[in-house]
Structures are given as C-alpha cells and as structure tokens.
Write a protein that binds this DNA or RNA. Structure first.
Ligand SMILES: [Mn+2]
Ligand SMILES: [Mn+2]
Ligand SMILES: [Zn+2]
Ligand SMILES: [Zn+2]
Lengths: 135, 135
DNA sequence: TTTTCACTTTAGAATAATTATAAACTAGAA
DNA sequence: TTCTAGTTTATAATTATTCTAAAGTGAAAA
C-alpha cells in the first residue's frame, strides 16, 4: 500500500490525513502480513522508527479512529491490555503465551461441524476460535 | 455442595478456611449452575447478601487463591474487566454483549472438523470457542 | 493567497481495575 | 493456652486507558 493509498484510505473514511495519522497508518498498513499490537507496543515501535515524536494520546486517538473506520479490529487476549489487528476480515488466532504473540488463522482453515443453536431470541453474530499454544 | 464439603475443598487445596473464604466459597460453589462473574459483581452480590462485610482486597485475594487452586477459571471477555467462571472444565461460551452475560457451551456441543496444525515447535494447549450473540 | 474554523494534537489530569504494602488479626498446631 | 504463619484489611501504588482544555493545523471558502 503506497502513500497515496494511505491518504485515500484516511480521506475516504472521513479521517483528515494529518502528519501523525499518515505516519501511524503507513506504519500499520504498508505491510504484507497482518500486524497484531497493543497501544504500548505500537508506541515503542513508532518511537524507535521515527524522528518526530507522536504523543501517546494521539496514538490512542488514531488507533480508535482507525478501528471505528473499520481499518483495525480488536482481539480479545488474556491480560489487561487491548490488542489490535490489521486483519479486519473474519478470522481466528493461535496465541503463544510464551511470547504474547498472536498468529492469524484463516477463517477457511477451521471448519466447525457441530455448533449449538443460539439461546431463545438470540442469533449468532460471529464465532471466534482461539487456540492456545504450548511448547 | 454442603458446608462440610466447602471446608474440605478449601483445606484439600491448602487454603485455610477462614470466615471470609468460607463465605465466598459457599456463595460461589453451593449452586447448581455455572456462575460467571467479575470481582466487582461478586463484591456487590456478597455485600447485598451477607451481613458481615468482606473487604474488596480479600475478594481479590480469595478469587485469585481459588483460581490458583483450580476451583475457578478465567474467561477472556471483551472489555477491561476480568471474568471468572465456576466451571473449570474445558468448555466454550456464548457471549451476549447486550447483557454482558456469558452462557456455557459444553465441550461436546461443539465439534471442530478441521483445524490447522500448530506452528513449528509448538503444540496446541487448548481450543476456546467464543460465540458472540446478537438480537 | 489568505482567512477561517472545525477537527486534531498534546501534556497532563482523571479514572478504573487491579496489585502491593504493612499493620492487625486469627486458625490451628503444639 | 500459647504461638506463629497465614490471612484480612485499609489504604497507597500501579497500570492501562480516557478525559480535558489549550494550542495547532488541514483544507474549504473568500
Ligand atoms: Mn484482554
Ligand atoms: Mn478482557
Ligand atoms: Zn489476526
Ligand atoms: Zn463458563
């Protein structure tokens, strides 16, 4: 994804492409593979990589804006911190608690044969499979 | 589960059956169905139910002790608070975000037909299925 | 091009959940 | 009954996150 596309991505979702948002968006979206991160880890990586300092509040703001725009999803991981995911399609995860690392599993790589029906009056919104790993 | 069994349960896991632990354990374990809770919700319910006040720190301590002893499990739910579960067997959950309520799914009620193999050097510890509900 | 202003960034304060501290208390062994 | 390691408790500390409000800026309009 090139810079022009980043600008399009931001503008098309109503996000003014500020210096900070463009820098964060380039870091997050100009990559081949899925990127899983916490705000803390993103902050560290951006600080290391870039010369211009982006405040932590802006990183929180930007990540939340990107999520609201559908450019990021949130993954539920054990622990106190929120994980985000550049893969916004329906998919599943391996989780390696040794390294606190998430690994994507394509939705098609898991087939559920039997599933209970939703309780009275409710419907199934989505199914998340989380596979914990050990050594 | 009767009081005598609560005492056994605590003692057999090396937990001295103090007044507070017995009261919390009775509240948690003397019931037919699984109970899902946060420390905050447990604190509210105990305050309502009982005459003797148990400090919040003790509720945290007790819940952690019970978890360490294998009498409670932790469930990962979206949001900032930790959920605990009196069902310590391998099982799955429905989650109703409207009511913030977890509903147990027996491990046998979900059959996974196809699953990817674990990454190099890793093994699968366990598989958790989380089914989000909508109306 | 300059003006204008709603949107954005930012430092720092506030909040919320949880954990740590350390003094007082107590279950139960001796 | 005495003794003490384990426990409870009030309160402080910590951590992640959100809020606040002042200063800055992108981009539409003049
Ligand atoms: Mn979490
Ligand atoms: Mn959680
Ligand atoms: Zn992912
Ligand atoms: Zn459960």
């Amino acid at each position: 994804m090139k810079k022009i596309d980043i600008l399009k991505k931001l503008r098309s979702s109503g996000l003014r492409p500020t210096k900070q948002r463009v820098e964060i968006a380039k870091f997050l979206f100009e990559r081949e593979k899925t990127f899983h991160f916490t705000v803390e880890s993103l902050n560290k990586l951006l600080t290391k990589k870039s010369t211009s300092k982006i405040s932590l509040a802006t990183i929180y703001n930007s990540v939340h804006s990107f999520k609201a725009a559908g450019h990021l999803s949130e993954v539920e991981v054990r622990g106190n911190r929120t994980y985000f995911d550049t893969n916004v399609s329906n998919h599943h995860h391996f989780y390696d608690s040794e390294t606190a690392e998430l690994i994507d599993i394509d939705a098609n790589d898991i087939i559920i044969q039997k599933i209970p029906k939703a309780p009275n009056g409710k419907k199934i919104k989505n199914v998340e499979v989380f596979i914990n790993l050990k050594n």
